[in-house]
């Protein structure tokens, strides 16, 4: 139930396909809690992580996921390599492609760059975040976390708060949660909302109390200071006052509402530090755990397709 060659975005995934990934992820959550975490699902396959943008947690998560499944994993910090020598993205991709990798995990600062790369290589490509476009595995790990905590992934009220304009996490989450028929509320100052977002099937407010009312899930986004070039918000303290999540604002959500954050957090800017550490409300650490499982599931499914297609191609050749 997952007929795809690449995982470039949530766009194009159907509800049953999302469920397929999440179901398989559950098995890997259990596996990851065992003492012996090693499996041979990807044995013999080569996974290359190409990160054209700084990343610690996502890169570590993909690397660990690949290693636990038995793949040969290589991580490349692309900022430090050939890009500096003026090589284009496509040339870099073709060079690596010639080494016969089976899975490429790519993060790039430009929207659409991963799609471009995927069109030039003959292996499976996973998007680990491209510009402000998509970050599909983050949305999937968020979905898995929600489903485990809430027992379902539909008919929930999910509030997504903060810097939506610069966030690929928000876009992927809006697509996924919408596909699974949830009610989505966006809470942000209007300067941090992308244009035309009202046509994405979401409710929009710039009032935290109003937006959090009755929410089952509160998803906080990082204020992407590095992507900002002036005058989006007056100051961090005013932002925290109006849009930062603290106990008082969270009191408007449902009593059992969970608090999520894709990390890394700006404590005291978008989320109160104590709340982030509150194990009764915050599932931030669990999100990280789910991340490894979801990435294992995604790579497993793509590798199954890859093997099947290669077998079919080989038959055609004969």
């Amino acid at each position: 139930m997952f007929p795809h060659r690449h995982l470039l975005g949530i766009e194009g995934l159907k509800a049953p396909e999302i469920t397929t990934i999440l179901d398989l992820s559950e098995a890997y959550v259990a596996q990851n809690r065992k003492t012996n975490k090693h499996l041979d699902v990807l044995t013999g396959l080569t996974q290359i992580n190409m990160f054209f943008e700084n990343s610690t947690r996502t890169q570590a998560s993909f690397e660990l996921a690949g290693k636990r499944l038995g793949a040969d994993v290589m991580s490349m910090a692309m900022q430090a390599s050939s890009i500096k020598k003026g090589e284009t993205l496509i040339d870099t991709a073709l060079t690596l492609n010639a080494m016969h990798p089976d899975i490429l995990v790519v993060r790039h600062p430009n929207a659409g760059a991963v799609n471009l790369l995927a069109s030039k290589v003959n292996c499976s490509v996973l998007n680990a975040g491209d510009g402000r476009h998509e970050h599909p595995t983050q949305a999937l790990l968020d979905a898995l976390t929600i489903r485990r905590r809430k027992g379902r992934l539909h008919r929930l009220t999910v509030a997504i708060c903060g810097d939506i304009a610069h966030s690929r996490v928000a876009r992927s989450n809006i697509l996924l949660l919408g596909q699974m028929e949830n009610r989505i509320r966006l809470i942000a100052p209007p300067t941090l909302l992308p244009s035309g977002i009202d046509q994405f099937g979401v409710e929009i407010t710039d009032n935290m109390e109003e937006g959090l009312k009755g929410a089952d899930v509160v998803m906080m986004l990082r204020l992407q200071k590095e992507r900002m070039d002036g005058a989006f918000i007056p100051s961090e303290r005013e932002y925290f006052h109006r849009f930062g999540l603290d106990e008082a604002k969270l009191a408007h959500a449902k009593e059992d509402a969970i608090v999520m954050h894709p990390g890394p957090m700006n404590r005291g800017v978008e989320i109160d530090g104590t709340l982030a550490d509150d194990i009764n409300r915050s599932v931030i650490q669990e999100q990280v755990e789910m991340g490894v499982a979801v990435r294992m599931a995604a790579m497993d499914l793509l590798a199954r397709n890859l093997k099947a297609w290669r077998m079919r191609d080989a038959e055609v050749m004969v």
Binding site: E11, A111, G112, D130, G131, R132, H133, E134, R168, R171, P194, S195, G196, I197, Q199, F200
Partner: peptide, 15 residues
Amino acid sequence: TSGPFASKLGLPSVS
């Protein structure tokens, strides 16, 4: 050009 389509693509847009 700014709008829902530009926001879906995640590209920097102008009104």
